[in-house]
Write a protein that binds this DNA or RNA. Sequence first.
DNA 1: GCAAAAGTGTTTTCTATACACCCATGT
DNA 2: ACATGGGTGTATAGAAAACACTTTTGC
Lengths: 228, 228
Amino acid sequence: MAKYLNQKPILVAVDCIIFGYDGEHLKLLVIKRAIEPIKDQWSLMGGFVGENEDLNGAAKRILLELTGLHDVYLEQFCAYGNPERDPIERTISIAYFALIDINKYSKQINDQYHAEWFKLKEIPALIFDHDEMVRSALAKIRYQAALHPILFELLPKKFTIPQLQTLYEQVYDSPIDNRNFIRKITASGLLIKQTEKDKSSSKRGAFYFKLDRQKHRSQFQSFLNFIR
Amino acid sequence: MAKYLNQKPILVAVDCIIFGYDGEHLKLLVIKRAIEPIKDQWSLMGGFVGENEDLNGAAKRILLELTGLHDVYLEQFCAYGNPERDPIERTISIAYFALIDINKYSKQINDQYHAEWFKLKEIPALIFDHDEMVRSALAKIRYQAALHPILFELLPKKFTIPQLQTLYEQVYDSPIDNRNFIRKITASGLLIKQTEKDKSSSKRGAFYFKLDRQKHRSQFQSFLNFIR
DNA sequence: GCAAAAGTGTTTTCTATACACCCATGT
DNA sequence: ACATGGGTGTATAGAAAACACTTTTGC
């Protein structure tokens, strides 16, 4: 087969910016590199794209290796290609953000990576351009979440309105009026009220809701304006 | 310097989806490949990322080669990495869309590429996954233009409201009420009315406007909702 | 005088926002 | 009985949408 001549191939990596929410705080999952080079520094979870792998496939694989999770919400948001970004060897990186239900994550599955969750305001310095990736992943999530119902991906199947509201407040780092919030959320028709309550965080208890998966899919592209 | 071992590098290309507007129709610029392999087929303008070049730099260079233009609005929107996407050799491609003032473009500058403008509904089949790139570039532009004032990039320095409205109608492929359109546009405060008129398209003539570059920059991130 | 495109206002509906109190329950 | 978090309604202001006629002027 013919080949392109005189072109220099480049290493291609995928990095995952993994967000989780524990019902109280929005958190980022990072790993401490256990191997040289640059051992013991905090880093995003990443890896090289394999020979017969597409980009999404590589991102899924990497996420599976770290978290043990399939079927995670993953979105490609930027390619980084500064020639100096990785001092070891020229590498371009395709960045994905992932939104996972933190309750499904179990550390044990892959503690070979020394993964750790950090609250957004307590993230340590990361290698390479990973700090910038985190900043722009967060900006992208704010942008997307203002228009599309993506934050449900961070919640368990059953969740309460106060949990959901706190999540939005975390993402936008600002308080939300809860009457207006409930009005918008219920107007969206995306939630199905359950009969059980979560009594873990108050005496009265808060009703559980489930996401209406069908409506969620069909309304995903319509702009929702949850936040302004 | 230490290197990553056992990793297979991949060719990295940039492809530009170049949109232009002639005051009447939104158009796409494509080239007829003059060289083997796959000679004489329609293609987007692309090229490989150089050894000391970042991704935006490569996109700018490629755009300059084809159009002779600097300072073009360019936005990276997706990386394509299917292992089969380029049958000649494994290549990943970082796709950018460009919005250019078609009046500034002059064919002569680089007719080595046999470039040609096509109306959106008359685009020929393109090689590789370029058809898909065009589709998603257009979707991205619709998305962006609904929220940010990017379509001015397609217009000359002085333009008329009817031209602007026709542009929006082309992008969204749907008619817009011109009283409501003018209200929104003037409310945005982005336009500065000129004293001259464009008499080329009507007897009465339409006033020229200029973009208020300062406001344009400062309001870029605020969501404008030009279209719903 | 007429054809062709530019420009102009009003009404109605909907959506966003601001705001404060009662409810249910475990201790 | 009281402390804690959950849940509820209304009034106002602003934005979007629907809608049709008059103006200018070159021919």
